[in-house]
Simulated scan of single mutants.
Amino acid sequence: MFCSTELAARIESAETDLIATGSSAAAARLGEGFTIPLAGGVASFAEPGSPLNKVAGLGFDGVPNVQELDEIEKRYAAVGSPIQVELAQLADPAFAELLTGRGYRLVNFENVLGRALPGPPTPAIPEGIEVRPSDDTEFDLWLDIVADGFAHPDTQGVASHEEFPREIIASAMRDLTATAGVQRYVAIRDGQIAGGASVRHHSGIAQLTGAATIPTHRRHGVQSALLSARLERAATAGCDIAVITTQPGSKSQQNAQRRGFDLLYTRAILVKE
């Protein structure tokens, strides 16, 4: 699958909307934080240590001026937070030059993978596993499964530069599922909830926003079943592309590519303390 700058801009716009909506929900819940539009993207601060604290989606709608960046940096300094910028490699190269000139350091990368929908057939859901939408009565259990998955990331490939406390992950996922249109799913195996996952549909893009399996149910096709069900339902809903973000060389990337996803582009992670 070829990724043009137009497609990258579309994906980054969906990511911007996801981050902005989740951060705004956290601000409403806690009475603090900020969500500031910036050059087509967003500068977001939800709460201390949150994965939603970032500048995302930049580089496809002009370059900010010095005064705008000064103000953003002051806002992050006021809450004692470093500034993390996630910059797509297909963004305007002037952004990288601007940020590195202001002292931002390259600390890591993340990969964005995608596949067309409906695309090639996905593996059939294994016998004995059922995937269904997760209702509000089991929200806490679903949250426990997914938060534990985020708290124990891949050890294969390039390690993430970030670690988040479990309670912070849980808060971010609660905000995203409550306000950003994130849909929750569970996989049932042997009559028990074996895994959980989520997806968000935005402007024809299915954002795969996380999945995890309970350790006792791993290696029985639960992850594959969750992926197949979400892709099928996204295609039915009219989405024409599904995207997933992974660490470079990770098991998550390997699994996604086995299921028809292509590497579209990489985001550089730039940080200023």
Rank of each mutant, 00 (worst) to 15 (best):
E167F: 13
I244D: 07
S4M: 07
D175Q: 08
G195Q: 01
A206Q: 10
A20T: 05
D61R: 14
P82E: 08
R102D: 05
L176D: 01
E127G: 14
G41W: 10
A180R: 04
R29E: 12
G22P: 02
A180V: 02
C239K: 03
A159S: 14
E163T: 13
F150G: 00
P133M: 12
A180E: 03
I241Y: 11
G22N: 02
I168L: 13
G49R: 00
N108R: 10
Q247N: 13
P123N: 08
A91D: 01
L30R: 13
R174C: 01
Q84F: 11
G59Y: 00
G80P: 03
E130P: 00
F164A: 03
G59D: 04
F45L: 04
A211L: 07
I36Y: 12
S24A: 15
F2D: 11
M173F: 15
A43V: 04
E32Y: 06
A147K: 02
S171W: 07
A27W: 06
A194D: 03
L226N: 03
A237G: 08
V63C: 10
A194N: 04
R184L: 05
G40A: 08
T137I: 06
L90V: 02
V222T: 05
A94K: 10
V182P: 02
Q89W: 09
G41L: 06
I83P: 00
E232T: 11
V243K: 09
S13G: 11
P82G: 07
A94E: 10
L18E: 10
R102H: 09
D175N: 04
S250L: 04
A26I: 01
A229M: 09
E6T: 10
S224R: 13
L176M: 12
S203P: 00
I125E: 07
Q207H: 13
I169W: 13
I72L: 14
Y185T: 04
V186R: 12
D135A: 13
I11R: 07
A256F: 06
A211N: 03
Q67A: 15
V79D: 11
L264W: 14
A211T: 00
T5R: 15
C3P: 04
E130D: 13
F164E: 03
I125R: 06
K74D: 12
S171A: 15
V158Y: 07
A235I: 06
A96W: 09
Q253T: 02
L231V: 03
C239V: 04
L69C: 04
S134W: 09
D175S: 00
V112G: 03
A77Q: 12
